[in-house]
Design a protein around this nucleic acid. Structure first.
Lengths: 135, 135
DNA sequence: CTTCTTGCAAATAATTTGCACTCCA
DNA sequence: TGGAGTGCAAATTATTTGCAAGAAG
């Protein structure tokens, strides 16, 4: 894989971001530094990096694919009321993966886990009998 | 929520399917029975059912959203070589969820877990020094 | 050099929306 | 009936592809 300015920039943006980013987001964050970077270049490289296992793909329930450095992959708890995202530390799947490799013969490379629920604030809002005119 | 012929059909197709289905797939499976059913109606109702927690949304890494009955939700192990999907029985997240509710104050409603790896056949294929002309 | 990459524009795919008409409750 | 729900077509959004020109090894 050749080392191009564009590739370095794409990886750097993802490294610097605390959150997974979509192709659009990567592209727009690089607009200052690489004004002529094509969106299609971003897409192509993000996918390339995924298949080299440099990046990890995340889709938070919606159809938008987001990417993050494979090393720093994490899990999120997402509020179904306000879309707030809370990062979850640690991940208890090592044991599950081991068992699965034994049972299925697969060699497991990665996983993606996302939880959904209502944040405290949205729970409150739901309880109150529709004060303001929502719905 | 009103009870329409279309809604019943959409839910039934999903109940009868062993696998999560995309909007397109639901629509095409109903083409015989409901020839005039609009794809947009399918989309609208799938989303509606999700927000009523009748359905569960799954996106297997690609950008396509798939739906399955909330009661029968499951997890999958997907081969990154040939896209084969293996359903995983059981799910060890109850303990994690409990801990998270305590820590974050969220009320957890659902989760989505997908694992990726190479199936035995694709592992073989990778090992052999590119017999046939696959780049 | 020569092959892998990029940029651009055009093509696809996936999903959403506006609106007039229909059909449950 | 009256409003929620539907169908259709058009609009968006997300992503992919073809190809000529550019840069890395």
């Amino acid at each position: 894989m050749k080392n191009t300015r564009q590739r370095a920039a794409i990886l750097r943006v993802l490294d610097e971001s605390a959150e997974p980013l979509s192709a659009e987001e990567v592209h727009s964050r690089l607009h200052g530094e690489e004004p002529s970077l094509a969106l299609s270049t971003v897409y192509r490289n993000l996918e390339r990096f995924c298949s080299e296992n440099l990046l990890h793909r995340d889709t938070f329930g919606d159809g938008v694919v987001r990417y993050s450095p494979a090393r720093r992959h994490g899990h999120y708890l997402i509020c179904t009321g306000c879309d707030a995202r809370v990062r979850i530390d640690g991940c208890p799947l090592a044991a599950l993966e081991e068992g699965l490799e034994r049972d299925t013969g697969f060699s497991i490379e990665s996983h993606s886990l996302t939880l959904y629920g209502k944040c405290p604030r949205c729970m409150e809002r739901e309880k109150h009998p529709e004060k303001s005119g929502e719905k």
